[in-house]
């Protein structure tokens, strides 16, 4: 199907061979979208893992109101992505939005900036919104991993005189590895498919400077009705995601299986 241009499929457009794929490879907007996706995935996933790990460690301590905290961090996860995108858009919107106002008030910025007209600043709310929304999920995964670690291991480590850092380094981290890997896989694959968030937050703009591959594909398919080209892009997204999953499974899967018994 994706070898045809199906702008008018009912007319039976001719077979166009691999030209749709070649077109994609030569298309600067496509390459840009691929790059944006990579950038988005790398940045947001690493932030989420770091904050998520910290949050999980904090939540693993017993303290009063832990249930409350857990519920509170779950709410961003449950909110529709489109809605959270709009919340963040609203906060960064305009010269006098809350973010601008707050940053100027604290003195971090002399003047308010218009976040959405420069590529560099437009990414900030995008990444923040994603981190805000999905870190709870990462934290919960890691928390489940932490709770699987036998407490007597820590007692043994303490008796052996290990400091808190060494306990973390030599007990927590190795045993948490499977959970970290699972979170990493889930989140990267998810970040690769990013669509709703950017659609509602920047619309891919300014210009196409925050457009990820899924959004570009969508535009080609349903905005410009280039079904052939769009389908070729879909296949590329699929292949890239699949490849990524395979790489993960290849390099991390063995370790996962091994430690999970």
């Amino acid at each position: 199907m994706h070898l045809h241009d199906l702008r008018m499929p009912w007319l039976g457009r001719p077979f166009v061979g691999l030209s749709n794929y070649l077109e994609a490879v030569g298309d600067p907007r496509f390459r840009g979208a691929l790059w944006h996706t990579l950038f988005f995935a790398a940045t947001s996933v690493s932030l989420e893992l770091l904050i998520g790990l910290w949050l999980a460690l904090a939540l693993n301590q017993a303290f009063r109101g832990r249930g409350l905290v857990r519920a509170a961090v779950l709410v961003p996860w449950a909110i529709p992505t489109v809605v959270s995108a709009l919340l963040w858009r609203f906060m960064f919107e305009g010269q006098t939005g809350i973010v601008n106002a707050a940053l100027v008030d604290i003195g971090l910025m002399r003047e308010p900036i218009v976040w959405f007209i420069q590529p560099g600043t437009a990414w900030v709310p995008v990444i923040l919104a994603d981190v805000w929304k999905t870190t709870p999920f990462v934290a919960l995964l890691l928390l489940a991993g932490l709770q699987n670690i036998d407490a007597s291991l820590y007692e043994a480590a303490r008796i052996d005189g290990a400091s808190a850092w060494r306990q973390f380094r030599h007990v927590t981290l190795p045993l948490l590895k499977p959970a970290i890997l699972v979170a990493l896989i889930f989140r990267t694959l998810d970040a690769f498919r990013v669509f709703d968030l950017i659609y509602a937050l920047t619309g891919g703009g300014p210009g196409t400077s925050t457009e990820p591959i899924a959004l570009y594909t969508f535009n080609a398919l349903l905005q410009n009705l280039q079904f052939g080209y769009g389908s070729a892009l879909s296949v590329i997204v699929f292949v890239v995601t699949f490849g990524l999953a395979m790489i993960y499974i290849r390099f991390l899967g063995a370790e996962l299986m091994g430690s999970r018994r």
Binding site: M1, R193, F218, L222, A245
Partner: peptide
């Protein structure tokens, strides 16, 4: 599991048809 992880955008066009 793999189907669940499938990128949605990849199935939009076949599903649309």
């Amino acid at each position: 599991l793999a189907v669940g992880m499938f990128p949605q955008i990849s199935v939009v066009s076949p599903l649309y048809m």
